[in-house]
């Protein structure tokens, strides 16, 4: 798969919300990133997964949301009717609704920054480098490298396995 997406290293997320605030500033005051906290201990940043068989694309009858050649989902606000169907079609709840503009908003991988050769705002701003932008292979290789190093250390006593 050639697509470049945003990946998260959960070992590193410190629930600071820098990514959310950055995204909000770069996107008309609407964040496409949402960091949720699980059991007061595990922070998980969530944004559009650019799914291969995206339910949001299936639900969209005007082709405002369409899959692109580079393996991402793109959004054209001009075609959006604001029906809201995709908001409820997304299994991860990461499509938001802009009540001012009456259109949806979804992570566009900071397309405006990418054309200028700059990484997505959330990726560069993350203080702990928990977010990275790139191809799946590169990410999994890096993740495996980091995981291998982590494996030699003891588990933190607080982690619960429920």
């Amino acid at each position: 798969m050639m697509s470049k997406l945003i990946y998260t290293d959960l070992e590193r997320c410190i629930y600071c919300w820098a990514c959310e605030v950055a995204c909000q500033r770069e996107h008309n005051d609407l964040s496409n990133m949402s960091v949720v906290l699980v059991e007061d201990r595990f922070a998980v940043p969530l944004s559009c997964r650019h799914c291969e068989k995206a339910p949001c694309v299936t639900a969209c009858y005007t082709e405002a949301l369409i899959p692109t050649e580079d393996g991402t989902i793109s959004f054209d606000a001009a075609k959006c009717t604001g029906c809201g169907l995709c908001v409820f079609a997304c299994p991860f709840g990461v499509i938001g609704f802009d009540w001012t503009g009456k259109v949806i908003h979804q992570c566009d991988l900071c397309a405006g920054r990418l054309v200028e050769g700059k990484p997505p705002a959330c990726v560069i701003t993350c203080p702990t480098q928990a977010l990275s932008y790139g191809e799946y292979e590169a990410f999994t290789q890096e993740a495996k490298r980091r995981a291998a190093l982590a494996m030699v250390r003891a588990m933190p006593p607080q982690a619960k396995v429920s």
Binding site: L10, S34, V36, L37, V38, E39, F42, V44, L46, V87, F88, C90, P91, F92, G93, V94, I95, V161, S162
Partner: peptide, 15 residues
């Protein structure tokens, strides 16, 4: 609802 979808996904990923 979308909020709970986020939380559920978060829980799944954390687990």
């Amino acid at each position: 609802c979308p909020n709970c979808r986020q939380l559920t996904e978060g829980e799944k990923v954390a687990k």
